[in-house]
């Protein structure tokens, strides 16, 4: 596993997953990468108290969880607070990821896990469907030099995101 080190903090995986913390994270990624801190940067989640509580309850003791809006989490990541941790950083959509990146959280690689299908979405793999906006955000990230990788769980094949010609 290659370390994707961020700006002064140890982000071992930055991931976009609209389900945020769920089975694949807890059962697959956390043990595979020896993660000991999960950071969820999401404005909606930070606002709904019960959802935040539940997410925190889904993580076993011994792994630190930090859930908050994007600005807050960016500040926390930049501070010395999380310095010694191996961090898994979660976003709900590519837009949030780009925002955090522009605020100075410089991950080198972005993992795309699950993005639910829906109307007007282009399905690019079994679990990922993108809107036009998502694609634009990802392209912007790629222009910054971030590698975009599609991979649900560590044992899946790493699939490089390919810019669609249109």
């Amino acid at each position: 596993m290659t370390d994707v080190s961020g700006d002064a903090v140890g982000i071992v995986l930055a991931r976009v997953d609209n389900r945020l913390i769920h089975g694949q994270i807890i059962e697959s990624w956390v043990p595979a990468l020896d993660v000991d801190c999960i950071v969820v940067a999401n404005n909606q989640l930070a606002a709904v108290a019960f959802q935040k509580t539940l997410m925190e309850a889904a993580v076993p003791r011994g792994i630190r969880v930090s859930i908050g809006c994007i600005e807050e989490m960016v500040d926390q990541l930049k501070s010395r607070d999380l310095e010694a941790h191996r961090i898994l950083l979660l976003f709900a959509n590519p837009r949030d990821a780009l925002r955090a990146y522009r605020m100075g959280i410089l991950f080198h690689e972005l993992n795309i896990g699950n993005l639910q299908g829906g109307k007007d979405k282009k399905r690019i793999s079994c679990t990922v469907a993108l809107t036009g906006d998502d694609i634009a955000q990802l392209q912007a990230l790629e222009d910054h030099g971030v590698k975009i990788v599609l991979q649900c769980i560590p044992s899946d094949r790493r699939q490089l995101w390919r810019r669609s010609p249109d």
Binding site: R19, H22, G23, V48, F50, Q51, M55, A58
Partner: peptide
């Protein structure tokens, strides 16, 4: 203070995480 759809969407992922684990 929240819609039922939002409630469902908020509940499913953490419950899945806890149940799977």
């Amino acid at each position: 203070g929240f819609g039922l759809s939002e409630f469902k969407a908020a509940m499913v992922a953490p419950c899945a995480a806890m149940g799977d684990a």
